[in-house]
């Protein structure tokens, strides 16, 4: 049973899982990062200018984002996966395979990432933001040079968490023939009662999460200049 074909398949599907996970994470950040920034900037004590128009606009943007994030996050991924099939078909042309998995994964992960980014940015010392304002920094400069730069170690920790979670979700995509290790585990382990293959895929998934976690933690520590010595 441990013939070449099986091993080759496991290697290939490991690659597929990595591809799905990394691509989905990148796309999810493209959507989630601006959402997270917007949530912080438009929050009640955020970087709003004094004008009343902005206050109302910010309140609206914040509320809409806040509700959207909560709604998407409370729909179970498996159901979201099904619900999004028409949309997925519209975007990538088909509703199965690795590329088709990326679409629902991105949409499910973006609000989660928005929250991670939001909480990282909220950790930035309000005093430092005030100092930047006192120097005449505008909102864009504060977002780029203060919020994102100062929150960098925390953002990396967040990205590590996001990668781990998306990797876990990607296994679920096996249900819609998404490919990857999750797909293998279900097809071989569940439908064909090959428990050993299922165990191997689980072990592979665990190893991948471990590696990501170690790299993320190391990188964050290395880049955090608040830690001395």
């Amino acid at each position: 049973m441990w013939d070449n074909a099986t091993i080759m398949m496991l290697v290939k599907e490991t690659g597929t899982t990595l591809f799905i996970t990394l691509t989905s994470t990148v796309f999810a950040y493209v959507l989630g990062l601006p959402m997270g920034i917007l949530l912080v900037v438009t929050a009640k004590d955020g970087l709003r200018p004094n004008a009343a128009v902005y206050k109302i606009l910010n309140a609206v943007v914040y509320k809409v984002l806040d509700v959207l994030v909560n709604v998407v996050r409370s729909v179970p991924f498996l159901i979201l996966l099904m619900l999004l099939i028409p949309f997925t078909r519209l975007v990538v042309g088909k509703s199965y395979g690795p590329a088709a998995t990326i679409v629902p994964l991105t949409i499910a992960a973006a609000p989660f990432i928005a929250r991670l980014v939001e909480s990282s940015l909220l950790e930035v010392d309000k005093g430092v933001i005030e100092a930047a304002q006192s120097m005449g920094a505008g909102r864009a400069a504060i977002v780029w040079k203060v919020l994102l730069a100062e929150a960098r170690p925390s953002l990396i920790v967040g990205a590590t968490i996001a990668l781990g979670t998306i990797l876990g979700y990607s296994a679920m995509a096996g249900v819609v023939g998404g490919g990857g290790l999750g797909d293998v585990a279900i097809r071989y382990g569940y439908y064909r009662y090959q428990a050993d293959i299922m165990i191997v895929t689980v072990v592979l998934l665990v190893i991948m999460v471990q590696i990501l976690q170690v790299i993320g933690t190391k990188l964050s520590k290395k880049l955090d200049k608040r830690i001395t010595g």
């Binding site: 010392d125 005093g127 430092v128 005030e130 100092a131 203060v146 730069a149 100062e150 960098r152 170690p153 880049l223 955090d224 200049k225 608040r226």
Partner: peptide, 10 residues
């Protein structure tokens, strides 16, 4: 400021 408010990552 009282608490200096320097950028810790710079």
């Amino acid at each position: 400021f009282q608490h200096f408010n320097l950028l810790m990552q710079r």
